[in-house]
Structures are given as C-alpha cells and as structure tokens.
Write a protein that binds this DNA or RNA. Sequence first.
DNA 1: ATGGCCACCGAGGGTGGA
Length: 261
Amino acid sequence: MKIATYNINGINARLPVLLRWLAEESPDVVCLQELKSPQERFPLKEINAIGYHAVWHGQKSWNGVAVLSKYEIEEISRALPGDAEDVQSRYLEVMIQQVAICCLYLPNGNPFPGPKFEYKLTWIERLAKRAKTLLSMDIPAILIGDFNIIPTEMDTYKPEKYVDDALFRKEVKEAFSQLLEAGWQDAIRQLFPDQQVYTFWDYFRQAYSRNAGLRIDHILLSPSIQNRLIEGGIDRHVRGWEKSSDHAPTWIRLRNSSNNG
DNA sequence: ATGGCCACCGAGGGTGGA
C-alpha cells in the first residue's frame, strides 16, 4: 500500500497537477492539506472519475484537509480533540485497510512570538495527546501531513536563517522529538538517514532551482506498523511542474499485513 | 535588511503562507 501526503496549496488551482500526479504515481492513499476550498467546492467528480474515494473537511479561504483512497474510507473524526472552540480544518482521522490514518495540517505558527505561535504549541499538545491514545490502542497508525516542523538542522538548507522561525523554534523541535521518543518513527528519515531531503521549496528567489528547501511534511509510523515499511520518497520533480504547489508529494510503501506483497 | 511569489476573496488590495 502506497501512502502519500501532499500539501496541495489550493485544490482547485492545482487540480490539473494533482490529477496528473495521481495518474502517474497511482498512490493508494493520499492525504491532502491546504485545500483552500469551502466544503461544497471540493472537486469530487474529477477525483471519483479516476478511481478514488474521498473524505474531506473544507473551509472557506484557508486550511482544509482531505483523504483520497482507492480503498474504502471509514471516517473516524474531523476534529483534533481538546478544543471545541477550534474551527480551523486541520485534522482528519480515518481508517483504511485496518490502518488509522491521521491527516494533519499543523499550524505554521509565525510570527514568533505571538498568538499564532501559542496556537501552534497548543495544537501540538493536543496532537501529542491523541498520538498517545493511538499508541495505547496498539493498532497500526500513521500521523501524516504538513507538520510545519523542521525537525533538525539537517532538514533545512540554512539553519541560521530559521533560529527564531516558528518552524524551527526549540519548543517545536522538542515536541517533534518527543513524538519519536514515544515510539513514533519518522519514516522518511528512517529511509534516508544521512541525506538532506526536502519536501518544500519557497516560491521566492528560485528556491526550487537552488534547492533551498525544507523538510516539513512527515510520515510517522506507530510501532505496530514499522516492520511493514518497504520504501519511500519525495516526488520532487512535481514541484517543478507548471502551477505546482510549493510542497512536493511525500510517500511511503507498506507491505500488506496479510502477506509479503 | 528587505522583498521576492502565489493563493485566497472579491472587485482592490488585504491576508496568509513558511
């Protein structure tokens, strides 16, 4: 089973890019972030037409998350527990093929310091709590999406530029490493232990052609699914397409649970 | 040090992204 995450940065503006990538790479499951579309403007017809089911949680102008799948999708939740007042569409938890998949769009948090950064920290605490519950359930689970976290210096082209950036603040890096200490595995780093790999390149200043990137999209595996990790990668060439998102699709392939396929 | 690019909404520039 091939599972991907892709911050699409406006699903209607990027629909040709999304459909082309789906046709070429044929992932089984795709977690999308930043739909930037109200619920009713999600392009379901086009997505169904190429063989994908979809569950989504839209929002006018900002945020919005979706899960596309060739398999049946059972929706578990469309809100991260812990704050009934939070109206931002940033979390969608589903069950696909006995795997709990948590599609998330973690708040950016800039500028630091300020209320947006505080919201980010609170959101991370809520996520950590949900992640802990999932671990206690001892089921195959995946935290996947745009974390807006640069985990280590290795994950940015220029660490010194990001010291006081909300993506690289120590509180945020610590929260990420605590998830790993709790038992979650950073699948992409596991597969590329010594290599600088990025998932995002700014639109500014030819960031993509200079490879001035960040690794901020992540796929974290619960212990009970880690032995199923076969391979993974970042479809960085998609970032070079006309009208592309500033993120690139990031994916892993898992062995089937019942056999070695 | 700053701004640069791109999407959103809505009808012009303001806001958010990372």
